[in-house]
């Protein structure tokens, strides 16, 4: 693995998804963003788990991206940044 490649993982609560089509759209849309390595959206748990490159994306930019799509995205950061 490339030692310069950094990887972070974040879990974002997503409210407002009701069917697998919503899940699919989010996965497609966010998965295309630069710096996103992998995304898994769970309809039952109402969250999105994203593995990303912190040099290109932050938890906040991805939360905004989901919010922009019209879903309620809430960030649960274990280490809140002031």
């Amino acid at each position: 693995m490339d030692p310069n490649m950094s990887v972070s993982c974040v879990s974002i609560s997503v409210e407002g998804m009701t069917c697998s089509s919503c899940v699919w759209t989010i996965e497609q849309h966010i998965g295309k963003l630069n710096g996103v390595h992998h995304i898994k959206v769970s309809l039952e748990e109402k969250n999105a788990t994203i593995i990303y490159d912190p040099k290109l994306q932050t938890a906040e930019t991805m939360q905004e991206a989901i919010d922009d799509m019209g879903f309620d995205a809430i960030l649960h950061s274990p280490h809140p940044v002031p």
Partner: peptide, 13 residues
């Protein structure tokens, strides 16, 4: 749009 979630998303944007 396929479901209420979709139309809610449209409403929000």
């Amino acid at each position: 749009m396929t479901c209420e979630g979709c139309s809610n998303a449209v409403t929000r944007v």
